[in-house]
Write a protein that binds this DNA or RNA. Structure first.
Lengths: 191, 191, 191, 191
DNA sequence: GATGAATGAGTGTTCATTCAT
DNA sequence: AATGAATGAACACTCATTCAT
């Protein structure tokens, strides 16, 4: 059976799944509920996604991809490195703050065992442009000479944590705080 | 008098649960398996833990507590701030690397919805000594004047990410790399 | 379109439940057995009845209703009161004797706590036509001026007991005995 | 193991069982709860009653016996038949009304399958004095020439129903109503 | 393709009973 | 005898997936 092409339905399923996972949490996710929320019959769901695992994995990749592409929109090859870096960094933070739902979902499933090796690899692929970008910084002597994956993780870790604090209401993200956080990030990786 | 309640059993259950969660992942965890692995009858499990959720939550807190206490062992009030900070930071990294299982479990459940609000709060409580410690650094003008919770998250985020890379074999943690990472951490928060 | 909901199944479930309750008694009733006896998968049972309690309650009402309606078939508004009364009384006895299974089930669950208040009320509703009928007898000065519910209970109690004796083989119900019992019943309520 | 002799404990168990059956109904009855309510350890319960079935059966017989004996206290061999009959009849009604708990329990378990044949037979034995009493009435030409068991059932059925109506609050039992009911009963069986 | 009724393996939890102390 | 921790068979109910229509 070739994958059918009704992109509207796929989108509806993604929306429904996202919503339900956030509401009922991880374990509460039932295929029947997803179907209902997407205004489909249970069986129809299985026409579009072979099974639950596939649904989760594809949604995960879908969200991750969207997020990454969105972040990269801020990139202008003509900018000097530091300018470009700041634009990207801020953009990533902004996106993460703007779409808490999607963020949370990603977080939620990252360490679950639900995610296939393949999905994880594909997702990591998405970060390649960023890794290449950092490599340029290193070559220009602006960034610490460390593995790009490590640098990336050191950048993303703090951002993700900040966003969580923002969600928890532990902290309100202001633009001056953003600036502060950026300074911290840059201080940590600059050569 | 009846057999006395055997407190070793609790530890056995913790071990078994930990082992199984890591093996089969979150969803695979079956109470019957936990019981078998802990050498108990199913029913016995329920004498010690009211239900699955409680078991998970208590184990989570148990691990988090142990880890935190272990980290704090490195603390000596007589040390100057920066020395104490480095000791604590390195200790946390070392512990995280040394007990990947416990680490992974904690990570795995942190954002899952399986964890009660209460458990989360109690777990956060554990970090209070560290927050107070950072407050001293601020007072001494050594650390950026930012909310301690934020500082803490900016410190832990990168460590956790590094440990993950180490697990994934993406990266080998050497002592020179540790030093490097520490420098990055310190650079990011120092005033 | 999916398979249409098969209303025969409900009847099959009723039959199976009835049979099993009578065989294994109240406590022995297992949902899995009911399903098997009705030639269904366990899950299917739960499509038609939300849970065990609901199944029992609906079956109870179903049987009670059938029995009551069957009894009322003997009623002809043109008959003089005493004639109509005798017809109804005999009819009730005959039906009770003819369908021992259904009778036993009803008896069995009437005082068990398994039955919802709602079910009890609805079941009592069924007797209303009889109560109205007795009210006519009172108005005509033929029947003792007592609450109709009381009269009804005084009539049904002895019938039920007689039927039980018949089941137990303590007693064989003959038509002359029926006549005798009717005389007793009528003597007890006639004005 | 000979049955131990601590009659206080046996009584406490009876009380507890009775109370719990009435509260939680038939299915809710748990041996552990009975033990707790009787201020005993679970194991102790099993010293006094081999198992749940035995407990239920013995309690049933115990209550039935008490009730019957109490009723017979009203009997005076010197009374003329009709006087004695009325005394007994009223006494039975009064007792039934006075101890609704015990009554309900008996009713509840009568049709449950929990009760052994043996228990039922033994319980029926208890009624023998009454059957003999009715036989006298027949011999004296005062009572209908019908099997005594039948007569008895025709007498008890209505009383039980009346008591139920009283419990349900459908009806308030007054002494004039008692008289009325007695007249109905006597009318129904008198020769 | 779409539907939703049907399936049945699977699972958390209970509870009568046993038994070590 | 008394205790209550331990046992494990049992069971109601769920839910991913299939399939008849």
């Amino acid at each position: 059976m070739a994958r059918p092409r009704d992109e509207n339905k796929i989108e509806a399923i993604y929306e429904a799944t996202l919503k339900l996972v956030l509401e009922t949490g991880f374990n509460g996710l039932k295929m029947a509920d997803v179907a209902r929320a997407a205004n489909l019959a249970t069986g129809t769901l299985y026409i579009y996604f072979k099974n639950k695992e596939v649904l989760i994995n594809e949604l995960y990749y879908h969200l991750k991809k969207n997020k990454t592409l969105k972040m990269l929109e801020a990139f202008d090859a003509k900018d000097p490195f530091v300018v470009a870096f700041k634009k990207l960094w801020l953009n990533y933070l902004t996106i993460s703050l703007a779409e808490p739902e999607r963020m949370k979902f990603i977080e939620q499933y990252t360490h679950t065992g639900y995610l296939t090796k393949k999905t994880k690899q594909q997702s990591d692929q998405l970060l390649q442009p960023l890794e290449e970008f950092l490599a340029i910084g290193i070559k220009q002597g602006l960034v610490k000479r460390l593995p790009v994956q490590l640098l990336l993780s050191q950048l993303m870790g703090p951002i993700n944590e900040s966003v969580k604090l923002h969600y928890d209401q532990t902290l309100k993200m202001t633009s001056s705080l953003k600036e502060e956080l950026f300074q911290m990030a840059w201080s940590s990786i600059k050569a």
